[in-house]
């Protein structure tokens, strides 16, 4: 589904990713771990298309209808419409924009893109409430401006709600677990697991092994200095938890 080839990217002239390769198939969960500053969040932002990051080399190929397209050539909104979803490490507060209105606008963009009929507010409200029930969330998440006055945990749960509503094919979780208490983390992980199926894929970017007890990865990759230096099964995460990163970096 996703094939990242020799990706080089940076911010304001400083290189961060220095030849990253990664291949993800439908139905898989990949964890990306690494010390601070290794480029984990940059990877997520480059895939989503954040304008501050400049790609200097490489490709991010993404399969749509059995054809491979280079995501880097698409605007962020077009990537999202093709099913790429990044759950933000720091979800943004948007004063004045009602959460429910915003989600319906986002959802209808996907409908339009797929040639499906758009939902009116009443239909959408029903659909949204089903998703909220699935994630055990209450009214306050939709009846106020997006993320405004939410706690850290609430913001992250809100990201998962958005993900459930938009039903993406590629879910990129950028340190969704950092700063979460154990209960919030379980709720978030549970939400992600409910959304998983054989047609979509998950990339979990995390600093801590803990989340991976709940979202169990098929592959664990260690990122260091902008490159993946080791890839293995889920046991690698436990080993890192135990021994730290130093033995891998040398």
């Amino acid at each position: 589904m996703l094939e990242i080839k020799n990706l080089h990217a940076g911010i304001e002239g400083t290189p961060i990713l220095k030849g990253l390769n990664l291949s993800v198939n439908a139905g898989e969960v990949h964890a990306i771990m690494g010390p601070n500053g290794s480029g984990k969040s940059t990877l997520a932002k480059v895939v989503a298309g954040h304008p501050q990051y400049a790609v200097t080399e490489g490709q991010v190929l993404y399969e749509v209808n059995f054809k491979k397209i280079n995501l880097l050539e698409l605007e962020p909104e077009d990537r999202a419409r093709e099913g790429v979803f990044m759950a933000f490490q720091y979800p943004v507060e948007i004063p004045g924009v009602n959460a429910s209105m915003f989600l319906r606008a986002a959802f209808n963009e996907i409908c339009k893109h797929q040639g499906a009929e758009e939902m009116d507010p009443i239909e959408f409200d029903e659909y949204l409430r089903k998703k909220m029930k699935l994630l055990d969330m209450d009214e306050k998440f939709i009846n106020r401006p997006v993320n405004v006055d939410f706690s850290g945990g609430e913001k992250k749960r809100n990201e998962i709600l958005q993900m459930a509503v938009l039903n993406p094919r590629l879910m990129v979780l950028d340190e969704t677990d950092s700063g979460l208490d154990i209960d919030s983390m379980r709720i978030v992980a549970d939400g992600v697991n409910k959304l998983r199926n054989k047609n979509n894929a998950v990339i979990v970017i995390t600093h801590y092994q803990r989340l991976l007890n709940y979202i169990v990865p098929d592959f664990v990759h260690i990122l260091h200095d902008g490159k993946i230096i080791k890839s293995q099964g889920k046991e690698l995460a436990l080993e890192v938890e135990d021994k730290g990163y130093d033995w891998l970096i040398k």
């Binding site: 948007i94 004045g96 924009v97 989600l103 986002a106 401006p145």
Partner: peptide, 21 residues
């Protein structure tokens, strides 16, 4: 960017944020 990453075109995002203001 947050709105764009949720499928909303940049021009619509500008409108939405200005409307919020």
């Amino acid at each position: 960017f947050y709105l764009q990453s949720r499928c909303i075109a940049k021009s619509d995002a500008v409108k939405m944020l200005s409307k919020g203001f």
